[in-house]
Design a protein around this nucleic acid. Sequence first.
DNA 1: TCAATATGAATGAATG
DNA 2: CATTCATTCATATTGA
Lengths: 191, 191
Amino acid sequence: MDEYTASGFCIRASRGGGCGGGGTGTKCGRWNPTSEQVKVLTELFRSGLRTPSTDQIQKISSQLSFYGKIESKNVFYWFQNHKARERQKRRRVLVDDANEIMHLHHMTNNLSSTKHFGEEKNPVSETIDDQRVIETLQLFPLNSLNDADSEKLRLFSTDHNCKENNASFTYNIMGSTEMDHPTLDLRLSFV
Amino acid sequence: MDEYTASGFCIRASRGGGCGGGGTGTKCGRWNPTSEQVKVLTELFRSGLRTPSTDQIQKISSQLSFYGKIESKNVFYWFQNHKARERQKRRRVLVDDANEIMHLHHMTNNLSSTKHFGEEKNPVSETIDDQRVIETLQLFPLNSLNDADSEKLRLFSTDHNCKENNASFTYNIMGSTEMDHPTLDLRLSFV
DNA sequence: TCAATATGAATGAATG
DNA sequence: CATTCATTCATATTGA
């Protein structure tokens, strides 16, 4: 459940508060890496370092302290976060790309080449002409779900045969008083 | 032009805002959610969804891409931000209430000792009296960690005494064009 | 035009 | 290693 872990309180004082001592004018609170520090860390990461050992962390921290205040734990966390986030990013990008391809597939199937005009768009990547894609999708008539879209039909069907089959993500037309779009079936989201 | 009057000192080079690395637009523009997308997300949130799992995020994103360009990342951030900001708001309200109660407390203390209600702290949350907790924690020595964290102890609380111990520094001046600082000898890091 | 605000994006620091 | 939270940065939007 939403048990709030009785944990981390951020104990930070306000800006410029105590934190005492600091000769380098370091702000109390969390580590604020210097651009040089980030540069070096990134370089290390790029060179293949992922999970530095304690010794390596110590050394790196020691060296990076040349550019500003730093602790070993900062280095440790930096690598942890960097690694995790790169992994996340990769995962999400992959899925997103798959989705986009699916959408483009649908689009081209539906529109059937009514877009020759303006074709001089740079085909470098699918990300360049975002606007166009967005417009296209937005203009895409929601009612034009003809039988060709078997998949979409299935997705948008108010059918409720997907009780425990979490594999299928179904829509559930809500009251539809003036809802011009299908809504997510929230029940499935809490499985 | 970019005069940051109050906060200023944004010395960090390109952290954060960078449009690097396969972001949404891949150009510096950030995701601009459609009203339908926002509507659906808000509905999900209102229905109790706070931290969707990765799968849920991907599904939501996939479905919302029907209304416009969107990435999993956007859904992820949306929920993070929404949740955090609701929490912020609530916390502020709580603090305000606490202050008010304190005021009332003072007043009623002067008047009489009628403070029977409100005595039982609701165990729901530990954040009721932030001020008090914060003060306590700040005074807390922070050394009282149990041996369960021996590993972390060894790593975290040992150094950060970045003195002039540069004897062990190993510099490797790279033939960089305008590198005004010494660089880490990466070879040391991979031993 | 320029502020204040809302909000998308990022990241440091944890926790399990 | 994954997930989460607090905080901060940056920008789009909006109001005066």
